[in-house]
Design a protein around this nucleic acid. Structure first.
Lengths: 192, 192
DNA sequence: TAATATTTGAAACAATCATTTCAGAATTTC
DNA sequence: GAAATTCTGAAATGATTGTTTCAAATATTA
């Protein structure tokens, strides 16, 4: 009876994500976005919606692909402490090698405070990382790989908390070594 | 021979700072700004300059007043470790009680990556905190108040690094207790 | 007080913003 | 192949963007 949508919606959202990643929500114009996505604004409004809906889909796309990557990364590691270390080191690598910092963190500080829908996506992303790590932390405590006498909840928060500061540090100093040293110290403290 | 500027420039910049603090650089319009500052845009362009120059003055105003407050706060504390603890606890209080998160951090993630002048201001602010704390950390190591066998530079970085994550955590969860627990754990680790 | 110099306020500026319109192209189903 | 339906592209929408203009108001100095 009728035509189908011509463009690949997931690919288009991924291109939009790149623009938001680089310019931020307020810094990205609809012209920037449609140009990068390779579609006309009428197609965009007909399928995805307005700028805000596009942004929501873009950050969801970002967080969901990160979740998949994280799950894959840790699936066949036997020692929970080693898995935590691997997660920390992978974060350090990403922080010190990707050009654009983290879209979730940028979004948190730019718009999450005043935007409930965005905040929900960010919170879900955070909760995923939290659940992923707390499982490992609990097992590591059970196995006595972590000897610090603290509850797993606080310790998980404590570990996750470092990543944001490392991002900030790398934006300001562009010094990989400083971050690697901090990560090493964190791991030592968990292992001791 | 001629008139003087009618408005109080420092007060006007302070008002502009509040707008940038709440809306971000890209989110704040010149109309938002001049309205809050209580001056006409022609006066603004005649004295302070354009939006970018105004922003630079606003974040300088922010960082300079924080520096003064920090110096005052620590001036008559004898134990260096106690001074570090006080600084950490004061940060926790600010993070969990101010409504707008930290302007310097927001700026870092929104514009510092692509704006050299802004980055310079942010870097200077960071360097001030670093110098303030490293003095205390070195003294604390000398006095054996801190027993962790690590160099003072890394340890200073490590301490400062927590604050950004605490800000992020409070934006997402609005949970004071989580942050207080992390701060307490950090202090314990330094003291042990 | 008069001449001078600068600020101020209101309006206007072109450019860009997000969004909508709609005729024509395209593809599907019968 | 014809009819039906939806998508696409280009243009236009009115609002808002940052910035400038300029006459009138104002304060200064001699």
């Amino acid at each position: 009876m009728a035509r189908n949508v011509e463009f690949d919606e997931q690919l288009a959202i991924s291109k939009a994500m790149d623009v938001f990643w680089k310019k931020g929500y307020n810094g990205a114009s609809m012209r920037d976005l449609t140009e990068a996505m390779g579609i006309n604004s009428s197609s965009l409004y007909n399928t995805i919606g307005d700028k805000h809906q596009l942004f929501l889909k873009a950050i969801k796309h970002y967080t969901e692909s990160r979740m998949e990557a994280a799950k894959k990364q840790l699936q066949q590691i036997t020692s929970p402490l080693k898995a935590i270390e691997k997660y920390i080191n992978a974060s350090v690598y990403t922080i010190t090698n990707e050009p654009n910092s983290c879209l979730a963190i940028k979004t948190t500080f730019e718009v999450a405070t005043g935007d409930a829908e965005v905040q929900k996506v960010i919170k879900a992303d955070n909760e995923f990382t939290y659940q992923l790590l707390i499982g490992l932390v609990q097992k590591a405590i059970e196995k006595k790989e972590i000897k610090v006498s603290q509850d797993a909840e606080m310790l998980t928060d404590y570990i996750i908390n470092h990543f944001t500061g490392w991002h900030e540090s790398f934006i300001i100093h562009q010094d990989k070594t400083r971050i690697k040293k901090m990560a090493q110290f964190l791991i030592e403290q968990l292992s001791q």
